[in-house]
């Protein structure tokens, strides 16, 4: 297995993040797949260390350690939390009780497993974003008159994961959030440029093809939230 078959050259990545047209050509979908997965892993490394430290210090799985941390937070600001079924004090107690329940495996091993699982989720989420969002954009491209094949499209748009690497700095207070925001905006710009380059659509159409799926996802999400709220309301009022 040759690494050059699985990753584009650093020069290509550099060209792509600087929005140069040469960055989006002569790359295969296999190289893009490798790049998205590897960059996802790299971005998740710092959060992995933070998660591992948090879970290991609590001696439990990461979700339970987070519940424990949430309980401490609620104790400090109980008035900020409103829940109709429990009082804030009971919520704190419940979270602490759950976080304190013993598990069969040793705490350090559970902490490692849960942090590792969270780490592996990073490249999987990036893959999902790349493939699912890409498929939606391809539908829009096709409707807007582009004549482009799937493989070159995915090969080019994979480069949007390069600036997304900045999201991995998110555990750093304040600076991390800013870096994350910059990374997301930069990735979107690279994505729009890649789409324009690979489809040869005029800039405005290319922009519309990339942004329309965002609108679609927003509408679907809002509809789902409305449906859930309606179900809860109907359940609460006994139909």
């Amino acid at each position: 297995m040759n690494i050059r078959h699985w990753l584009p050259t650093p020069q290509k990545m550099s060209d792509a993040v600087q929005l140069r047209a040469s960055g989006f050509t002569e790359t295969t979908m296999r190289q893009s797949l490798g790049m998205v997965f590897l960059l996802g892993l790299l971005a998740g490394f710092l959060p992995f260390l933070v998660n591992l430290q948090q879970a290991a210090s609590a001696g439990t799985a990461l979700p339970l350690a987070r519940l424990g941390a949430q309980a401490s937070l609620l104790q400090q600001t109980p008035l900020d939390y409103v829940f109709p079924l429990f009082s804030p004090a009971q919520i704190v107690e419940l979270f602490q009780l759950i976080a304190g329940l013993p598990q069969p495996l040793p705490g350090w091993l559970v902490a490692f497993f849960s942090a590792l699982g969270e780490w592996i989720n990073w490249p999987l989420r990036w893959l999902a974003l790349w493939i699912v969002y890409g498929a939606l954009v391809m539908v829009c491209n096709s409707v807007l008159g582009a004549n482009c094949r799937l493989q070159p499209f995915f090969a080019a748009t994979g480069f949007a994961s390069t600036p997304l690497l900045l999201v991995g700095l998110s555990p750093i207070p304040c600076f991390g959030r800013v870096c994350g925001l910059v990374g997301v905006i930069w990735a979107l710009v690279v994505y729009i440029r890649a789409n324009e380059e690979v489809t040869n659509l005029p800039r405005l159409r290319s922009l519309a093809a990339v942004l329309l799926p965002l609108l679609f996802i927003l509408i679907v999400t809002l509809s789902a939230i409305a449906l859930v709220l309606l179900s809860v309301y109907l359940f609460a009022t006994g139909f």
Partner: peptide, 14 residues
């Protein structure tokens, strides 16, 4: 690996 979740939407779309 425990705590890993694969989005069903990724599987279906792919």
């Amino acid at each position: 690996i425990p705590f890993v979740s694969v989005a069903a939407v990724l599987i279906h779309v792919w």
